[in-house]
Design a protein around this nucleic acid. Structure first.
Length: 229
DNA sequence: GCGACAG
DNA sequence: ATCTTGTCGC
């Protein structure tokens, strides 16, 4: 797919924060997102790290929206150019993620990220950031509540509770499987929270994490292991 | 000042 | 994220 390489990659934390403040005004977390009732492509992205060699490998795996079968996939390897800083994860992960997305045959209809979107100190988590850079609808599914508060959702699959930053609702704790910890969903760009949660639930019929994330996670780990050897 | 802190 | 064995359960 075509990916604009016009994005800026700051090297200091101060410049990164300024870039987030510039991009957050471009985010749109309203609307139903893409209509996938007549088919479509959902892509999951994830990154694995090799700190010893200062390298990162990203994977992008495209699933058919209806069958959840893998129809395309790509990986990319790159140098780590930004440290892990809570709140600035996008600057560490997205450069190599964009390279993996660029290697796909076609542009997907929806991107599922490992992490947050709107639920972020400046409302620009990596999912929202990636959405603004690509123009493609995105949302985030995280494995921990980050900085935010929530009440334990009901035990049944599909039950949820608001994820709160003070009085503001920034996402949702969603139970994708009975008897398993919830995941934390937030809107990224060009799709609202309700639709993001519906997609998350549909993508997790058997496991806690959506199939997109599981496939991308496995692929980038395999690719990193292959690069080491 | 100290600890917490997506991946 | 990553370092890491066995173990309980479907």
């Amino acid at each position: 797919m075509l990916v604009p390489h016009s994005s800026r990659w700051p090297t200091s934390e101060e410049a990164a924060v300024r870039e987030q403040e510039r991009l957050r005004d471009l985010v749109d977390i309203t609307g139903p997102g893409p209509d996938l009732t007549n088919g479509g492509m959902i892509v999951g992205v994830d990154v694995a790290y090799d700190d010893a060699h200062n390298r990162a490998v990203a994977a992008a795996v495209v699933l058919d929206a209806a069958s959840h079968l893998v129809i395309d996939q790509a990986t990319a390897i790159g140098h780590i150019t930004f440290p892990y800083v809570s709140g600035l994860l996008a600057f560490r992960e997205l450069p190599v993620v964009l390279d993996a997305l660029a290697a796909l045959r076609h542009a997907p209809d929806l991107i599922v990220c490992d992490g947050y979107g709107f639920a972020h100190p400046r409302r620009l988590g990596l999912a929202s950031h990636l959405g603004v850079l690509t123009g493609i609808p995105t949302f985030g599914v995280a494995k921990s509540p980050f900085l935010y508060a929530f009440d334990t959702p009901g035990a049944q699959r599909g039950q949820s509770s608001p994820l709160r930053d003070g009085e503001q609702i920034v996402g949702r704790a969603l139970r994708t499987q009975r008897g398993v910890k919830p995941v934390f969903v937030s809107a990224g760009h060009r799709i609202d929270l309700d639709h993001a949660c519906a997609h998350t639930l549909a993508l997790a019929p058997r496991y806690r994490l959506p199939e997109t994330t599981r496939q991308a996670d496995q692929l980038c780990r395999r690719a990193l292991a292959a690069a080491r050897a």
